[in-house]
Simulated scan of single mutants.
Amino acid sequence: MTMTVRDFRATDAEAVAAARRSAFPHLVTTPRTVVWESESAPADQHYRLLVAEADGRVVGSCEAGVFHDGDEPGTAFANTTVVTGARGRGAGSALVTAAEEYLSGLGTARIFAWTLDGTSSVTFAERRGYRRGRCSRVQRLDLTTAALPPLSPDGLPDGVELRTAADFADDPRPLYEADAECTVDEPGDVRRAAPPYAEWLALTWEHPALDRELTSVAVVDGAVTAYSVAHTDGRGHYWSGMTGTLRAFRGRGLAKLAKNDSLRRARSAGCREAFTGNDHGNGPMLAVNKWFGYEPAATEWRYVRELSA
């Protein structure tokens, strides 16, 4: 078998999407999102998408870049996926080696990578000098059978309205301001700053998987207070991109209300499966998703390698 690692081309998008779905079937991945991510990454991220080609067929990919918005300089990411039938033949090793060389050349000192909690994946990472960090709990809800609770037995609380992201098409800044506050509070291995508004517009608001009609927003007395972001792939899959509540309004059930509305909209739109991922330390959202009836689907681990070591 002849193995080649090269840079991504737009004609590889279908194969790369298939490889990612085979490894992480819960994520919303389409050829369009693959191309968009490659073309829309901020310059400071130094994003590079590598593909492994075996005998003329793309069998895997690795996205690599730096956390340009992280609070610790010199941190980078390299996430590798190989299509199921081609694993164990050197494609993953070739991709990771190429990515590490690229990131090392950028002066990075630490590389983070996501991997599933399986023996082969964990062994692969640890043999290459990666150590285990935090974990993310992936959960699944069957929307065809889920008994979603009523939005509110007695109607919405006084002053609360439910809207969609589409209602903010003319001015999405209120959504940006809410997202900026909530995102920095998320637990994780890498602390990241809120992006400038222009970058948020480009990377979040214009994301091709964002479904604005299914993204629900809780408004209190006219102000955005909570939201639940919906990503869809046109194949019946729904991914919770982010659910959050402004600090001053937490503990009032507004995030649960927004997510309930979003899930109901998704089911009405024909979505069959809903997935979400939460850091193992995010107790409030794990409790919310359990309340909705989500069940464990997978565990992902964040692994890290110190290049100096």
Rank of each mutant, 00 (worst) to 15 (best):
G155L: 01
A146K: 05
D171I: 04
D154M: 01
L162M: 01
L156R: 00
L162E: 00
P150T: 10
L175M: 06
A166P: 10
P153G: 15
P149Y: 01
L156P: 02
T144I: 02
R163H: 09
T144F: 03
A169V: 13
P150N: 08
A178S: 06
P153N: 14
S152N: 14
A166Q: 09
A166E: 11
L151T: 15
E161G: 01
L162C: 03
P157K: 04
P157Y: 12
P174N: 09
S152R: 14
A147P: 11
D158I: 00
L143S: 10
D171K: 13
A169T: 14
T145M: 08
T145P: 08
D158W: 00
D158C: 07
P150A: 11
D171F: 05
D158S: 11
D167N: 06
D154K: 09
T145H: 09
A178G: 00
G155T: 01
S152T: 13
P153A: 15
D158Y: 03
A165T: 05
D158F: 03
D142W: 12
E177S: 03
L141R: 02
V160K: 02
T144C: 09
P172R: 05
A147D: 15
A146D: 06
D170V: 15
P153K: 15
V160S: 00
P157M: 07
T145G: 12
R163T: 05
A178H: 06
E161D: 13
P150G: 03
A165L: 11
F168P: 08
G155W: 00
Y176A: 12
P150D: 10
A146V: 08
D158M: 03
P174L: 10
R173W: 06
R163V: 12
P157H: 07
A178D: 05
A165N: 10
L156C: 00
F168N: 04
D142G: 04
S152K: 11
L148E: 09
A146F: 03
P174G: 13
V160Y: 00
D170P: 09
R173P: 07
P149E: 10
G159I: 03
L151V: 04
A169M: 13
E161Y: 02
L151P: 01
L148D: 12
T144G: 11
E177T: 11
L141T: 02
L141C: 13
A146N: 03
R163L: 14
